[in-house]
Computed example of a mutant assay.
Amino acid sequence: MPQELGVLNALDVAKTQWYHFTAIIIAGMGFFTDAYDLFCIAVVSKLLGRIYYYTPGSLRPGSLPPNVSAAVSGVALCGTLAGQLFFGWLGDKMGRKKVYGITLVLMVVCSFGSGLSFGHSAKATMTTLCLFRFWLGFGIGGDYPLSATIMSEYANKKTRGAFIAAVFAMQGFGILAGGIVALIVS
């Protein structure tokens, strides 16, 4: 036990070095992608309605039915809750860095899957989108607490608050990027 306390004390008094900034960038990009993936769906849902639920000859653009819109938006949040519980436990068992890598791979795969959702009908496409968004949320659920925890563990006592604030600030940039990309695409 005393050896573990020595390691923690060494981290608390360590001078700010390059690995601190690397940890900020890595954890910050995790928060950036979390926010981007969770919040861009609001604008994307409008586009999905116009593509998949447009009635030819109608004067109004198509829109997602309320139940489909709720499913597409909410399924990722359900996955996030499940992912936080699962990956929090797994991170304690296997190690945070290893599990953090698993969550990032899951997020990348499911982000591409969400973008390439497929089906022969609107219902089938929305179903595959919901499937990928659930697992994307599951990965986000793991990434979110692990990013904050990893950053707080690597930061020294003097700069811990500023470093964690820098990581959390990336959420705002992720939400902003999601809106900008959706505007460009639309």
Rank of each mutant, 00 (worst) to 15 (best):
S114L: 04
L136N: 05
V75P: 13
G119Y: 14
I25K: 00
I140C: 10
G141L: 05
A122N: 05
G49A: 06
G62A: 08
A10Q: 14
P56S: 10
G95I: 08
P145D: 10
P65Q: 07
Y52A: 02
S152M: 10
N9G: 08
L131C: 13
S63G: 06
V105R: 03
E153N: 07
F87L: 07
V167D: 09
A155V: 08
I175Q: 13
L116P: 00
F112D: 00
Y52S: 05
F163D: 08
M94V: 15
G88K: 11
W89Q: 13
M1R: 09
V108F: 06
W18V: 02
Y54F: 14
L106W: 04
I164P: 03
I102K: 06
F168H: 06
R50Y: 02
I150C: 14
T55L: 07
L146H: 09
G95C: 09
D143M: 07
K15C: 00
G115S: 03
C78R: 04
D92M: 08
S58V: 00
N67Q: 12
G113D: 12
M1F: 12
I25P: 00
I24K: 07
L136G: 02
I102V: 15
P61W: 02
S45G: 06
A42T: 13
W135F: 15
F118E: 03
E4G: 00
L48D: 06
G57E: 11
G79W: 12
F173I: 12
G101N: 09
A166Y: 02
N156S: 05
W135R: 11
L104Q: 05
A10T: 04
G137W: 10
F39A: 06
H20T: 09
I26N: 05
L183T: 14
S147F: 09
A182C: 05
T149M: 13
F87P: 12
F118G: 01
K97W: 01
F39P: 01
I102H: 11
H120I: 06
L48P: 04
C40A: 09
I41Q: 04
Y19G: 02
F168G: 04
V72L: 15
F173E: 03
T33I: 07
H120Y: 12
C40I: 11
C130H: 03
R60Q: 14
L85H: 10
A70C: 03
P61A: 10
L85C: 11
V99W: 12
G74I: 11
P61T: 12
K46Q: 10
K15I: 00
I150Y: 12
L104H: 03
R60W: 06
Y144P: 03
V44H: 01
R96G: 11
A10M: 05
L146W: 04
